[in-house]
């Protein structure tokens, strides 16, 4: 279980969000929403432990996250904006090094099955530089399928994915949640809430003060413009 308490993040003297608190229990999908620059990626990187520019507390299974990072990383799959694939390697080779690095022993057959599930069967020995952006994303999703992590942290996973792929990925989330996993996802796409396990969190509501100031400022600017 992931517990975020009173989290605030400041970037370049701008308060992205403050007093952000939420819980993510097993079997839940949490979608982080917000306009561009609202701090969605920053929030995910903070939770993943890649960024430490924050104030507040993070708990993983009711222990402070900073103390149990090794356990947390065993149980966490992070997929950022960039899929993290080497273009000179084949999908199979990419999946192999990633699963080793994430401490999940997956056999060649397991990886092939994962590639089959993301509809990339037959592409396993083609260099990733020959694949399209959407196919590269799918290779990364194959890593997701093969991983045994319980918490998935996905930053804009639907980028470059076709409509059929979106439905497929939503199904994957549901399946993971029904097995007791957790999904933390940012997306501009509105996910369909098939099984009632989807929650949404708008980042703007935690940046209210900053926005009021900005709104006043913009209004003044508009007034001046009219005069």
């Amino acid at each position: 279980m992931l517990n975020v308490v009173q989290l605030s993040c400041e970037r370049d003297d701008r308060l992205l969000f403050s007093n952000l608190s939420f819980k993510l229990c097993s079997g839940e999908i949490l979608q982080i929403e917000g306009r561009n620059g609202a701090g969605k990626t920053s929030l995910l990187r903070i939770i993943a432990g890649l960024s430490s520019s924050y104030a507040g507390d993070l708990f993983w299974n009711s222990q402070p996250l900073a103390k149990v990072y090794a356990d947390f990383r065993l149980d966490c799959f992070f997929l950022g904006h960039k899929p993290g694939l080497k273009l000179d390697l084949t999908p199979l080779e990419n999946l192999a090094w990633r699963s080793r690095l994430a401490n999940t022993a997956v056999s060649r057959e397991g990886l092939l099955a994962a590639l089959h599930r993301v509809h990339l069967a037959g592409y396993e020995d083609i260099p990733c530089s020959h694949l399209s952006a959407g196919q590269l994303r799918r290779v990364a999703f194959a890593g997701l399928v093969a991983s045994q992590a319980s918490l998935w942290i996905l930053d804009e996973p639907f980028t470059a994915i076709d409509a059929e792929g979106v439905a497929w990925l939503e199904g994957l989330f549901d399946e993971h949640a029904s097995q007791g996993g957790m999904v933390l996802v940012t997306s501009h796409q509105s996910l369909s809430n098939l099984k009632g396990n989807l929650r949404k969190l708008r980042l703007e509501t935690f940046a209210a003060e900053a926005y009021i100031e900005e709104a006043v400022f913009e209004k003044r600017g508009a007034d001046n413009g009219q005069v």
């Binding site: 890649l50 356990d71 065993l74 992070f78 960039k82 993290g84 694939l85 990633r98």
Partner: peptide, 14 residues
């Protein structure tokens, strides 16, 4: 860093 593999390295439990 360019292809995002560094994040995977930093996220490794090792």
């Amino acid at each position: 860093q360019d292809d995002g593999a560094l994040d995977q390295l930093l996220m490794s439990p090792h």
